[in-house]
Design a protein around this nucleic acid. Structure first.
Lengths: 336, 336
DNA sequence: TTTGTTTCCGAAAACGTTTCCGAATAATTA
DNA sequence: TAATTATTCGGAAACGTTTTCGGAAACAAA
C-alpha cells in the first residue's frame, strides 16, 4: 500500500512539487485555476500531505501533551475533553498520558512527551514534588507549559487554578448558616496543596463565625470512597460524631454516607453532609448530596487557550487564571 | 532553543553521522568502544534522535490510534489504560480520541488518525453504523484495525469481545434461582448489538427455566441513570412492578434504585436488582449491587497485543478474542 | 606474499515536505 | 517603446534521520 506523494501529483500534472505544496498551503503566489486543478486531481488521486514530512520541514509537531494523575474519575476526563475541544479546532493532536498518582511515572511521561517534540504541555502534577524543578527547567528551555489544578499560586509559570479557599469557605459557611456548628472536615491528603487551600477556607469560615476550636476537627483522609468509609467507621466506633461532615470530595462523601446508612444514622437529620468536586453521582444518592461544582470543561478550555497563545507568542509572560465554582445545595445539608 | 542534532555529535567526535546513528540503533557493525564514546558524548551534549525524522525515514510513526465512544465512565478509561500499558512498553504513543457517542465525530476521528499516519487503530464503534464500510476499506488498504466491544461476532476483522450472551444468561439465571420469576429487563438501546446479545441471554435463561412470556418484559431504555429513573417512575405510575429487575448497566440500576427508595420500595425484599458492566459504585450503594464484572483491563491489553502482532505480521488472518466476566452476587439480588 | 574474511566506518541516497531564490511571463507605468 | 512591477512558477536546499553500498583496515589462512 504505497502512499501517494506530492511528487506523484506533480508528475501527473506536469507542475513542480512546490506548486502542489503551494496549492495545499493557501499560498498567495499561485494562480487560482492551477490551485484548483491541483487540489482536484490530488483529491482524485487520494493524496494528502504527509504530516510527518510536514512536521520535519516546519520544525513543529502540532502535538500537545497532557499529563494528568488519572482519568478514571470524571474530573480529569472532563478537563481533557475541554482541552481537546480547543486544540482539535486548531488542528493539533492531543497526546494524553496518566501518571496513576505516581510522581515517577509522571516524570517519565513528561520526558516521553518532550522527546516526542510536543509543541507544548499541560501538566496537572500529582503533588508538589521535586519534579517541579525539572518542569520549570524545561519551561525555560523554551517548551511552553501550563500547570493545572494542583499547583501553588505563587509558582512562576502560567497556570489554571480553581479557587479552593473561597469555595471551601462558602461550603462551610453554608453548613454553619444551616445551624450546624460541630463540623468535621475530612481533608484529603495534606500533601496536596488543594487540600491545604480547602482547609484554609474551612478555618476561615470557622473563625469568621466565631466557632471555637473544640467544636471542629480536621481529619486527614485519602481521596477514595474507601477512605471515607474507614474514617467514618472509626468515628462511630469512638462515639465521636459531629453535626455535619464536609468531605474533600464526593467519593469520600459517598463512602461516609454508606457507613452512616448501615448504622442507621440519618442524613441530614442526624448528620449533615457536604461534598466537593461535584460528580454526576450527587443526584443518585439518597439523600441527594450538596456539593461544590468545579468548572472542569472551562478549566480544560482555559488551559488550552492559554497554551495556544503561549505557543504563538513565546515571549508572553506567565499568566494565572483562577476560576470560580458553584455551590449547589441539595437535601444532604438542609435542616428540615 | 536549537536542538542538538546528529550532525553536531558527529562533528564533535570527527565521525560520520552514520556511526552516530548506528550507535543509537544497536547495530552490529560498529566497534564497541566507539559506540560507547558516541553515546557518552551524545548524553553530555543533550542529544536524542529526533523522532519526527526517524519516523519519516522509517516510514513508521510508532503511533497507534484509539477511538472510543466516551471516557467519562470507568469502562473505556480502564480499557484505555490496558492498551497504553502494552503499547508504551513497546515504545509506541497512544493517541486517544472520543466520539461522544456520535458516528460523525467517530468517522472524523478515524480519518484524522489515519491522516496522521498511525501504524494501527483500535476502534470501539458507537453503534453498528454505515461507518463500518469505511473502516473495513481502510483495513483492506493495509491499516491494521482491531474492533472492540460493540461489534458483531461475524464481522470479518480482528476483534475483542465480551461474551454478553453468556453473562446475561448467568445473571438472569441467578435471579431465577433466587426464586424471582417476574423479571423485567431494562435493555439499553436496541441499536447496540451488545444490547441485542444480552437480550438473547436473558431470553435463553427464561426459556431454559420455562418461564412463560407473560411473566417477563424487555423494556428499551437508554444508558444513563436518568433513563433508569424515568422508566422506573413509569412502572410505578402504572402499578406494573416485577419481582426483580435486570439492568443494562450499573448506571441504569443506580437510577432505578434511587426511584425505588423514594417510593419506599425495598431492595431486595420487594424488588431484586441486578446490574451489568460493574463499576466501582456497586459497593457504595445500599444495598450493594450485584453485577457482572467485565475484564476491562484485559480487553484493552488483548486488543493491544493483537494489534501489535498484526502490525508486525501484516498477513496474519483475522482473529476473534472473546473474554469472560465474573458474576458477583451482593445484597441487591439475594432472597433473605 | 597473496588471497580471502571480517570488522568497522564514511559517502550518499532516501523519506516527503516547505521555503528561499531566482527567472519567466504578464501587466502596468513612464 | 522601454522600463518597471506583479504574478506565477520551477529548481534546489533544508529539515534530521536511517540505510544501502562500497571501501579501507585488520586479521587469518594459504
Amino acid at each position: 500500500m504505497k502512499h501517494v506523494t506530492i511528487k506523484d501529483v506533480a508528475k501527473r500534472l506536469n507542475v513542480s512539487i512546490s506548486s502542489v505544496s503551494r496549492a495545499f498551503n493557501d499560498k498567495y503566489d499561485i494562480k487560482k485555476e492551477t490551485k484548483e486543478l491541483i487540489l482536484k486531481t490530488a483529491e482524485e488521486m487520494g493524496y494528502f500531505p504527509n504530516p510527518i514530512a510536514k512536521k520535519l520541514s516546519q520544525n513543529k509537531t502540532f502535538n500537545i501533551g497532557v499529563v494528568v494523575p488519572e482519568f478514571i474519575n470524571e474530573y480529569y476526563s472532563e478537563i481533557i475533553i475541554g482541552i481537546q475541544e480547543v486544540f482539535m479546532g486548531h488542528g493539533y493532536q492531543v497526546l494524553i498520558t496518566q501518571s496513576d498518582e505516581n510522581p515517577e511515572i509522571e516524570l517519565k511521561n513528561v520526558k516521553t512527551l518532550i522527546h516526542s517534540m510536543v509543541d507544548g504541555l499541560i501538566i496537572a502534577p500529582t503533588m508538589e514534588s521535586t519534579n517541579m524543578e525539572y518542569y520549570l527547567k524545561e519551561l525555560n528551555n523554551g517548551c511552553p507549559i501550563i500547570f493545572m489544578s494542583r499547583v501553588k499560586e505563587n509558582l512562576q509559570a502560567s497556570k489554571v487554578l480553581f479557587n479552593n479557599k473561597k469555595w471551601a469557605f462558602f461550603a462551610t459557611e453554608h453548613l454553619i448558616r444551616q445551624g450546624y456548628s460541630k463540623i468535621y472536615y475530612l481533608a484529603g491528603s495534606k500533601n496536596l496543596n488543594v487540600s491545604v487551600d480547602r482547609i484554609d477556607g474551612f478555618k476561615r469560615a470557622m473563625s469568621k463565625h466565631k466557632i471555637p476550636k473544640e467544636r471542629y476537627k480536621i481529619l486527614e483522609t485519602g481521596l477514595l470512597a474507601e477512605d471515607g468509609m474507614q474514617i467514618m467507621e472509626d468515628l462511630i466506633y469512638n462515639h465521636d460524631l459531629p453535626d455535619a461532615i464536609f468531605c474533600f470530595n464526593d467519593r469520600v462523601a459517598m463512602g461516609v454516607i454508606s457507613i452512616l446508612k448501615s448504622n442507621a444514622i440519618k442524613v441530614p437529620q442526624d448528620i449533615a453532609l457536604m461534598g466537593f468536586t461535584e460528580t454526576r453521582m450527587v443526584n443518585l444518592m439518597t439523600p441527594r448530596l450538596s456539593s461544590v461544582k468545579q468548572p472542569t470543561f472551562e478549566m480544560g478550555k482555559s488551559a488550552a487557550e492559554l497554551l495556544h497563545k503561549q505557543i504563538h507568542n513565546s515571549l508572553m509572560e506567565p499568566q494565572t487564571i483562577v476560576l470560580n465554582g458553584e455551590l449547589t445545595i441539595r437535601e444532604s445539608s438542609v435542616r428540615n
